[in-house]
Amino acid sequence: MKDKPALLKLASVSKAFGGVQALDDISFEFDAGLIMGLIGPNGAGKTTLFNVITGAYVPDSGAVSLDGIPIQGRRIQDIVHLGISRTFQNVELFESMSVIENIMVGRHVRTRSGFWSAITRVPAIRREEKALRERAQELLDFVGLADQADRRSGDLPFGWQRLLEIARALASDPKLLLLDEPAAGLNAVETGRLGELIGNIRDLGVTVMLVEHDMALTMSVCDQIIVLDQGCMLAEGLPREIQSNAAVMAAYLGNG
């Protein structure tokens, strides 16, 4: 018997689009403090699963809970507030805004100022704005973009845009950070640094779940791996168990 609920728990989650069963009876759970890998061939349902966890999709059936709190069907902003944030497969920054402003928007759910307080600029709002800027700068230091704060984010090189997107996702103080193919488009050196960064994020106390096609990276950073294939759970276990799992081999390479 555990006295604390799992950080994230999915119970029999299913989601279909038209006739396609994108997720079929997915159940798993994991505790805080881990780096979870989510792998599977193209079309396995990884991104759909991310969209279900973040609230972009509502599952057709089943339950998703964070720290024991059911989250399926809640608004995205409430789920972010509860502590889940994400990055996108194709980096989606606010390109016309500066680097630091991107992170400040990332902290939207942890700040309060609204229309009226913006107009009146009461002292509490000035303080909030100042603290927000400081926090954003800390996050820039953390991902190694400290001296880029005022650059237009769309002008950054691609690798830095990825780092900025991760910093923006961290700005909402998540308990669980979902990274959707963070190494896509990065070179070997950048991928190596990304691996270190993911470790550092875990050391901050943020649980990380990543979808990744770069197997070297996945196997080296992940504590646990979940394998999906055609919307179904295929396997779950330690990286070395997954590597020697016959079903996983078959899914990736075909039944030769």
């Binding site: 973040t54 995205i76 972010v80 507030h81 996108f88 989606e92 928007v105």
Partner: peptide, 9 residues
């Protein structure tokens, strides 16, 4: 899309 994902209503 990204604005919604970071929690902007």
């Amino acid at each position: 899309n990204a604005a919604r994902a970071v929690g902007v209503g």
